[in-house]
Design a protein around this nucleic acid. Structure first.
Length: 477
RNA sequence: UCCCUGAUAGCUCAGCUGGUUAGAGCACAUGACUGUUAAUCAUGGGGUCGCUGGUUCGAGCCCAGCUCGGGGAGCCA
């Protein structure tokens, strides 16, 4: 006989039927009630053993964390807390769990502690819910693009170009550290290295993505990305996952529409397919916020927040308009910003982005047309000679979740910008070829996957929405 | 990397103005109870007070440095 998953048993009304349940003990109460979880749902099933007829040493082995197989009759529960339960006929301990050494207890643990035991934290309700939602969002992203005829490209993890300017890179090498081969002028001789040149882990698949978009029209990437920045925040990881669509014959408006549509699609997918998980996470958040003073609590609960996000257009405005709003805000006049907005051209600090999103508009915001000085070389220059066709999507509580642009497709202007920003053109000859041979307007963006999961789950630290976080001074597991 | 903050039992935390033997809840062990819901009740075991040095008659508490965690900033997704 096959085991039945707990998610199905809890919905069943097949009373009297013999079933097999396999899972892990969460708690064993009153010497007779085993709460079993098999990961198929956040909820447990209750198995009831007759302690008068069951071997006492076996009952002793029913500790939190132990793996068990239970055969018995599915019955309508005699108790109040649950609809169904399993009346145990046969009980097998598949794997013991020394209760004295097992770190998880049937109580609340801090997220910091669980992060230290990331190999076991999947066994908690919170992480069960978080990773179910993470899975659903990943699946929804592929479904969204597949439905629209996008080609999923696997861009390389190891790259030779060091010219993308998206941050510090991790070096990839097989050279010995204690006896590094040197050239005549004393520099490391990468000709001796595995690839015959210096290589790094990718910081973005965008440039390769553009090459593919110039043939398939519409592509996306979804893969790991690496940044060796010494960033210690709740929204940065050294290894994270990013979605990067690239669309030929698209302008900035098409790009914004695509991003907004994608975000709403996947949020809606989670709302309809992860109802139990989101309900659990909503309550978790409410519980957590009870500790906070009234004015720091969220106005909307998690599910209401997601629905609100779906039913409202993202606020679109230019950088110039944003500066005006910030400059004229009471917040700025009363000097409540640490960095006072004085003139056009200043880079927006987190506090300014948060003011726009959380105080002024109170919904997701898309900022466009930033000064060219504070943006990357490949963004399309506007006619004003000052700004570029960039767009950042800012989410409440998260900050920048999407960063994208219409790309500069005009060779001369691109080359000129690269020269100004000291980007070596030789290294990117293949990238420039797209502008030489049948260049076309195109646009794309990068969506930080963990930041998306953060928003949808209501968690507050990206380290809690990726299985095994890699951050400065931390690469355990 | 910078600013703030923290580190006391397996976990969560208390520990007064520097003063005798460092406490609680949960977890664990033993027993009782047996339709519980993080079961309950009784009893018990459990500590290099992050590390190093200093001040002091005396340091968990004061000072310095270091390590690690958390929050914020920068960089960004």
């Amino acid at each position: 006989m096959q085991r039945t998953k707990i998610v199905d048993l809890l919905k069943s009304t097949d009373y009297g039927k013999e079933v097999i349940v396999k899972g892990w003990v969460r708690t064993f109460r009153n010497n007779q009630f085993i709460a079993i979880n098999d990961g198929s749902t956040t909820n447990n099933i209750q198995a009831v053993v007759d302690f008068n007829t069951t071997d006492e040493t076996k009952l002793k082995r029913l500790t939190t964390g132990a793996a068990v197989a239970v055969t018995g009759e599915l019955i309508e529960s005699l108790g109040k807390g649950q609809k169904v339960e399993v009346k145990v006929k046969q009980l097998e301990i598949l794997g013991d769990c020394d209760a004295e050494k097992f770190p998880l207890q049937p109580k609340k643990h801090s997220l910091e502690f669980l992060r230290e035991i990331a190999h076991l934290r999947f066994r908690t309700n919170t992480f069960n819910a978080v990773f179910k939602v993470r899975h659903a969002l990943a699946f929804a992203i592929h479904q969204f693009f597949n439905e629209r005829g996008y080609v999923y490209m696997h861009t390389p993890i190891i790259t030779a170009s060091d010219a993308e300017g998206a941050g510090e890179m991790f070096k990839v090498t097989t050279l010995p550290f204690d006896n590094t081969p040197r050239t005549e002028d004393g520099k490391v001789d990468f000709k001796e290295d595995f690839f015959g040149r210096a290589t790094n882990l990718t910081v973005s698949g965008q440039l390769e993505g553009e090459l593919a978009a110039m043939a398939f029209g519409e592509i996306y990437t979804f893969g790991p990305t690496f940044r060796a920045e010494n960033s210690n925040t709740t929204r940065h990881l050294a290894e994270f996952w990013m979605i990067e669509p690239e669309v030929a014959f698209a302008d900035l408006t098409d790009n914004m529409n695509l991003a907004e549509e994608l975000l709403k699609y996947v949020i809606n997918y989670a709302l309809t397919n992860c109802t139990d998980e989101l309900e659990f996470l909503k309550n978790r958040l409410l519980e957590e916020e009870k500790q906070k003073p009234q004015d720091e609590r969220s106005v909307l609960d998690l599910i209401a927040k997601l629905n609100f996000c779906l039913s409202n257009d993202f606020q679109r405005l230019t950088y110039t308009e944003a500066i005006d709003i910030l400059k004229n805000s009471n917040h700025n006049k009363k000097k409540k910003f640490k960095y006072i907005i004085e003139s056009w051209g200043a880079d927006l600090q987190s506090e300014h982005e948060r003011y726009l999103v959380e105080k002024h508009f109170k919904k997701p915001v898309i900022l466009t047309d930033y000064p060219k000085e504070i943006k990357a070389f490949y963004m399309r220059q506007n006619e004003d000679g000052k700004t570029v066709r960039a767009m950042d999507i800012l989410f409440p509580g998260i900050g920048e979740i999407v960063g994208g642009s219409q790309r500069e497709e005009r060779l001369a202007l691109l080359e000129q910008r690269m020269k100004e920003m000291h980007i070596p053109a030789e290294e990117l000859h293949w990238y420039l070829d797209t502008r030489k041979f049948g260049t076309a307007p195109h646009a794309g963006f990068g969506l930080g996957f963990e930041r998306l999961v953060l928003f949808v789950t209501g968690m507050t630290n990206v380290r809690d929405v990726i299985a095994f976080p890699r951050t400065p001074k931390s690469a355990e597991f």
